[in-house]
Simulated scan of single mutants.
Amino acid sequence: MTDLYWDPLAPELRDDPYPLWRRLRDEAPVYRNDRFDFYALSRFEDIEAAHRDAETFSSSHGTTLETMAPEPQDTAMMIWLDPPKHTTLRKLVSRAFTVRRVSALEERIHEICAELLDAQVGSGGFDYVQDFSAILPPTVISILLGVPGSEREELRHVVDNVFHMEEGVGMNNETSIGALTELGLRLGAHFADRRGNPRDDVFTDLVNAEVADEVTGQARRLTDAELASFAILLFSAGSETVARHVGWAASVLDEYPDQRAELARDPGLIPGAIEEILRYEPPSPVNARWTTRDVTVRDATIPAGSRVILITGSAGHDERKYPDPDVLDIHRKVDLHMTFGYGVHFCLGAALARREGRIGLEETLKRWPEWSVDRARTEMLYTSTVRGPLRLPILV
Rank of each mutant, 00 (worst) to 15 (best):
T2F: 04
D3A: 11
P11A: 05
D16E: 13
P17G: 11
Y18C: 06
L24P: 04
E27P: 02
A28Y: 02
D37L: 00
Y39M: 03
A40S: 12
L41Y: 14
S42E: 08
R43T: 02
I47C: 05
E48Y: 01
T56A: 10
T56Q: 03
F57Y: 15
S58A: 06
S58Q: 01
T64F: 07
D74K: 05
T75A: 03
A76M: 08
W80L: 07
K85T: 10
T88S: 10
L89E: 09
K91D: 10
K91R: 15
R95I: 02
F97I: 04
T98A: 04
V99A: 15
R101K: 14
S103K: 14
A104P: 01
E107D: 11
E107K: 08
E107R: 13
C113P: 15
D118W: 02
G125K: 11
V129P: 04
S133V: 10
A134G: 15
L136P: 11
T139H: 06
S142V: 03
L145F: 10
V147T: 12
P148S: 05
G149H: 08
E151S: 11
F163A: 14
M165L: 03
M171S: 11
E174G: 11
T175F: 02
T175C: 05
S176A: 14
I177R: 15
T181M: 12
T181N: 12
E182I: 05
G184F: 13
H190I: 04
R199Y: 09
D200I: 07
V202W: 10
T204I: 02
T204H: 04
D205I: 00
Q218M: 10
L222A: 07
D224I: 04
L227A: 13
F230E: 08
F235C: 08
A237S: 12
A237E: 08
A243Q: 09
A243V: 06
H245N: 12
V246T: 11
V252E: 09
P257L: 11
P257K: 12
G268R: 12
I270Y: 02
I270M: 04
I274M: 14
E276A: 03
E276V: 02
E276L: 04
I277K: 00
R279A: 00
P282A: 12
P282W: 03
P282K: 02
P283L: 14
A288P: 03
T291I: 02
R293Q: 13
R293C: 06
D294Q: 03
R298V: 01
D299K: 00
I302N: 00
P303L: 11
T312P: 03
A315W: 01
H317L: 09
P323W: 00
P325M: 00
V327M: 02
R332L: 12
F340G: 01
Y342E: 00
Y342I: 00
V344P: 15
F346H: 14
F346L: 14
F346D: 06
C347I: 05
G349Q: 10
A351D: 08
A351V: 11
R354W: 03
R354E: 01
R355L: 15
R355Q: 15
R355Y: 01
G357S: 14
R358N: 11
I359D: 00
I359F: 00
L361K: 04
E362P: 03
E363R: 15
L365W: 04
K366D: 05
R367E: 05
P369T: 11
W371K: 07
W371S: 07
D374K: 09
T383M: 08
T383Q: 07
T383I: 06
T383F: 07
T383R: 06
G388L: 01
P389G: 04
R391Y: 10
P393S: 09
